[in-house]
């Protein structure tokens, strides 16, 4: 669990982060979302003391981070940055071994962990272990960076625009892979991004920041349907329909969907988003899909018009 209280950072006369507080529960992923210069990266870097806070306090699992030596602290916090930051003079294996070596692991343990992790990330050691970063593609590099941050199995992971340097196609692929990594399920993660889709896809909770402050904090539905002010509202204006359809799950509109009397071939689960339902409808070019409720096994029917009607009703009720 990460607790930050009244955190501020001044660079000379400019206040980059102003008096913000937040709590990230164990196993939760919190996203710091905002435009460039809103203070989200500064906030992130204060947590592993790459930037020293001007005032305020941060504790990780009950321990005050300012009481620890910065280097020792950082070895216990995974960090993934936008510009991968891989060492060009180290092989993939050596890059991954940096933190374990700092922690004094023996070689066998390092190799075992590295092998397992690289396999999961589809970078088999036999093929990639002895390669140097400049021999890898952008997506491969970023996966090595992720492996490097995960290998020591630190409970906390900080990610600064981790997929920001990748092209949209690769980004989506690496992100999907990343979300499904078993190592990540238990981790407490703070992720910085300016990409709203990424925030919605990955964040259990999203803190929208502006001018060094947290403007609103909550899940995607809170931000979309219960905006705290005009800034929040206008922030999502560009892709509102898409975002709303992504934020709403079938379980949210369950009671508005017609009950099934037939059983269509194409089946979705109720924790999937309306967007995924619409996508499936148009991709398969079908009139209706089945949606299965995970809790009770009940099945309901989704059509273009039934989803749309339900969506409009929900919106009006919120």
């Amino acid at each position: 669990m990460i607790v930050a209280e009244k955190l501020s950072k001044n660079f000379n006369d400019i206040q980059a982060v102003a008096d913000i507080s937040f709590t990230v529960k164990e196993g939760e992923t919190m996203v710091l979302l905002g435009t460039s210069g809103c203070g989200k990266t500064t906030t992130l870097k204060m947590i592993n003391r790459l930037i020293e806070a001007t005032s305020g306090s941060i504790s990780i699992n009950g321990q005050d981070i300012f009481q620890q030596q910065p280097e020792i602290l950082r070895r216990t916090i995974g960090y993934v940055s936008q510009n991968n930051g891989l060492f060009p003079h180290y092989t993939v294996s050596e890059n991954i071994a940096v933190v374990p070596r700092l922690l004094g692991w023996d070689k066998v343990k390092i190799r075992e962990h590295a092998e397992k992790l690289l396999d999961q990330l589809k970078l088999p050691v036999a093929e990639f272990g002895d390669k140097y970063p400049d021999e890898l593609s952008g997506g491969q590099k970023q996966r090595v960076t992720v492996a490097r941050a995960l290998i020591s199995d630190s409970p906390v992971l900080l990610m600064d625009e981790p997929f920001g340097a990748l092209d949209p196609v690769t980004r989506a692929a690496v992100r999907k892979e990343f979300v499904n990594l078993p190592e990540l399920k238990k981790k407490t993660i703070i992720l910085v991004t300016h990409d709203v889709q990424e925030a919605f896809e990955m964040g259990d909770r999203i803190c929208l920041m502006d001018k060094g402050r947290i403007v609103q904090s909550g899940d995607a539905k809170d931000l979309l349907f219960r905006p705290a002010n005009d800034f929040v509202r206008s922030f999502f204006e560009n892709q509102r329909l898409y975002l709303e359809l992504t934020a709403l799950k079938f379980e949210d509109i369950w009671h508005l969907l017609p009950v099934s009397d037939s059983m269509p071939d194409n089946v979705l689960e109720s924790n999937q988003s309306l967007w995924q339902g619409m996508e499936l409808l148009s991709q398969r070019n079908v009139k209706e899909i089945a949606i299965k409720n995970l809790q009770n096994g009940e099945v309901r029917i989704g059509t273009q018009s039934s989803i749309q009607t339900a969506f409009n009703q929900i919106k009006n009720n919120i």
């Binding site: 592993n48 790459l50 280097e71 020792i72 602290l73 950082r74 070895r75 216990t76 960090y79 940055s81 936008q82 510009n83 991968n84 930051g85 891989l86 060492f87 060009p88 940096v98 933190v99 700092l102 490097r148």
Partner: peptide, 12 residues
């Protein structure tokens, strides 16, 4: 970015 990541991993 490289020196920062070195520091971020806990190098003194």
């Amino acid at each position: 970015a490289i020196t920062e990541s070195a520091r971020a991993m806990g190098m003194n």
